[in-house]
Computed example of a mutant assay.
Amino acid sequence: MSLFAECPLTLADAELRYLPGWVAAAEADQWLQALLAQTPWEQPQVFLHGRHYPVPRLVAWYGDQEARYRYSGLIHTPLPWTPLLTEIRRRVAAECGQPLNGALLNYYRDGQDSMGWHSDDEPELGEQPLVASLNLGGARRFDLRRKGSTRIEHSLQLEHGALLVMAGATQHYWQHQVAKTRSPCAPRLNLTFRLIRSPA
């Protein structure tokens, strides 16, 4: 099978494509090192059950000037695109066949950095959000479950240089997470490109 062959994931009420090796390893290495060095990382706090908690990862939000984005109760004003992110966005948008005006960068420093169960279904993303997730660095397990269920229905190992595209009704019916792990894992950078249709 071609390294660049599309791998559709057959889940009901979901439209998923996993493209391993979407960017060659050497170029992915260059992107990872440059982005880790260039990005002004932040660790925002979220307010849950009457207390503030730091999110368990580092983040940065880039986008077009109008692409403000609300998630986890916070409104994020975009940083301007860097030349490297502009090029990566161009290539991801060409793959997806639609414009993309924002990118959330998540930096998982080790196995204790994580992303809890959620759907990318904020109103700003429209009725059928497209989220294109580019993975650089250490591989991490990506879990999917039906909304309203506690059972993991599908897991996918997100590898260095791979692109996962979630489209259609996926966010309406499914949640996803990157769980904490005690297994040794290299730092991972995840870029999730999206189209903000009605800015926050």
Rank of each mutant, 00 (worst) to 15 (best):
P99V: 01
R182C: 11
P123W: 03
D120W: 00
E159W: 00
P83N: 05
P187T: 02
R90N: 12
I75N: 11
E122S: 03
L36T: 02
R151Y: 09
G102L: 07
V55H: 00
Y173S: 05
L58V: 00
A24C: 12
F4G: 06
Y53M: 13
Q30C: 14
G137E: 00
G116P: 07
Y71S: 08
A67C: 10
L191A: 07
A5P: 03
E27Q: 15
R188M: 10
H160S: 13
S114R: 13
H154W: 13
H49M: 10
R109F: 06
Y18P: 01
L3A: 14
L16Q: 05
A186Q: 15
D121N: 10
R51M: 09
E42S: 14
R182H: 10
W81L: 11
P44A: 11
Q177V: 07
Y107H: 15
Q98I: 04
A186M: 14
L32M: 13
P44K: 04
R91P: 06
V59E: 12
P54E: 05
S198H: 15
L163D: 05
L58Q: 10
S2P: 12
R194L: 05
I152W: 12
L9Q: 07
V59T: 15
A103H: 00
M115Y: 09
A93V: 02
E15L: 11
Y53D: 03
M1S: 11
A93S: 14
L195D: 01
V46T: 03
P184F: 12
A93H: 05
V59R: 09
Y107W: 15
Y62V: 00
L134Q: 03
G148S: 10
G148P: 05
P199S: 14
L105T: 00
Y108S: 05
W61Y: 10
D13Q: 14
A186R: 13
R17Y: 09
A25D: 15
P80E: 05
V178Y: 11
A94T: 02
G63V: 02
L163S: 08
R197V: 06
Q177H: 14
W22L: 12
F47P: 00
I75H: 04
Q45T: 04
D29S: 12
A186Y: 09
P187W: 06
L163M: 13
P54D: 07
E6K: 12
A103K: 02
W31A: 09
H52P: 04
L105Y: 03
T192E: 11
H172A: 09
K147H: 12
E127Y: 00
Y62K: 01
N106G: 09
L19M: 13
Q38G: 06
L48G: 02
S198E: 15
Y108T: 00
H118V: 01
L85V: 00
F4P: 01
W174N: 04
L130S: 06
L189D: 04
N101E: 09
Y53L: 13
A25S: 15
E27S: 12
L134K: 05
L79E: 07
L48F: 14
L16H: 02
A28F: 10
Q45G: 11
R146T: 01
G161R: 06
W22F: 14
T39G: 08
H172G: 03
G63Q: 04
G63I: 03
S119G: 03
H52C: 03
D64N: 10
K180L: 05
W81R: 08
P56V: 01
E153K: 11
Y107D: 00
Q128Y: 07
K180W: 06
F142G: 03
L164R: 06
Y62R: 05
D110Y: 10
S119Q: 00
K180F: 09
E15D: 12
N101V: 05
N106Q: 08
L35D: 04
